[in-house]
Amino acid sequence: MRKTVLLMCLLVGTLTSMAQKSESAKFMFLVHSGKNQMTEMSAQHQKEHIQKVGAYIGGLAKLGKLIDAQPLAMEGELISAKDGQVSQKKLTIANQTIAGYYVVKAKDLEEAIAIAKADPRFEENGWQLEVRPIKQVSGIN
């Protein structure tokens, strides 16, 4: 009797954690570039880069893995609060590095990282992809 109860516990526990995993999670990839990489490339290089990344994104979309992918305008503003005082300043290359973002569906962080690693922009130096799970609560919403 006790054994059955125990087995049930473990089973339910495992099922719960499995349920959380198989429910495909959403991830945001923040594309970081130290400086504006694109402007330093030659026109030919730029074109190739766009084509490669485009193919990669298109592939993800076909697999149903891609929810959104957008580049961000390099100019922007940073609004900050310090002890209730709100101030605003222009973003510069020095304090911002996010060149764009993807929102991707994956089974878990591992798969998300694998997807990130397949990004052909890694053929160039200087890029970083920050892979962040979008918070989700299983069984709610």
Partner: peptide, 20 residues
Amino acid sequence: AWLYTTAKNLAINTVARSNN
């Protein structure tokens, strides 16, 4: 309900972990 579901899941995971 949101809070109870979240707390429940966390508690179940805690027990599952300690059981393992």
